[in-house]
C-alpha cells in the first residue's frame, strides 16, 4: 500500500541535483561528490580511473546505505590539480575509453558476421 515505487531506486526525484560537490573545510584540494541514484557501477569505474591520475593523492567511493540510493566519491589531489579537475578528467577519459571500445567491438563484429 505505502511501498515506494520501484523506480525510486534509479530515477532522480524532481528538484534533486544529480551531483553535488562539497569542499573539505580542513584539507585543501579535498572534496566529496555526492552522486544521486548511482551505485558500484559508476562508483568503482570513477574511483579506478582517478587512481590512474598521478595528481590524485586519494580517491575512494562509498555506498553509505543500501536503501539510500546514492554514492559518495571523495577525492584529494596535489596542488597541481583539483578534485573537480580530476573528476572531470576521469569522466572524460572513461567516456573516451568506451568510445574506443565500441569502435573496436564493431570492427570485430564486422569480421565475424561475415562468416556466420
Amino acid at each position: 500500500m505505502n511501498a515506494p515505487d520501484r523506480y525510486e531506486r534509479f530515477v532522480v526525484p524532481e528538484g534533486v541535483k544529480k551531483v553535488t560537490y562539497e569542499r573539505d573545510t580542513k584539507i585543501i584540494n579535498a572534496a566529496s561528490f555526492t552522486i544521486e541514484r548511482e551505485d558500484h557501477t559508476i562508483g568503482n569505474i570513477v574511483r579506478m580511473q582517478l587512481h590512474r591520475d598521478e595528481n590524485v593523492l586519494f580517491a575512494g567511493y562509498k555506498l553509505p546505505h543500501p536503501l539510500q540510493y546514492k554514492i559518495i566519491v571523495r577525492i584529494h589531489t596535489t596542488s597541481q590539480s583539483s578534485p573537480m579537475q580530476a573528476y572531470n578528467q576521469a569522466v572524460n577519459d572513461l567516456d573516451k575509453e568506451l568510445d574506443h571500445l565500441k569502435k573496436a567491438f564493431e570492427a570485430e563484429l564486422a569480421k565475424h558476421s561475415a562468416d556466420y
Partner: peptide, 10 residues
Amino acid sequence: GVSYQRFPKI
C-alpha cells in the same frame, strides 16, 4: 589535464 585514457582491445 593530461589524459589517462586506456585503449582496450576486444
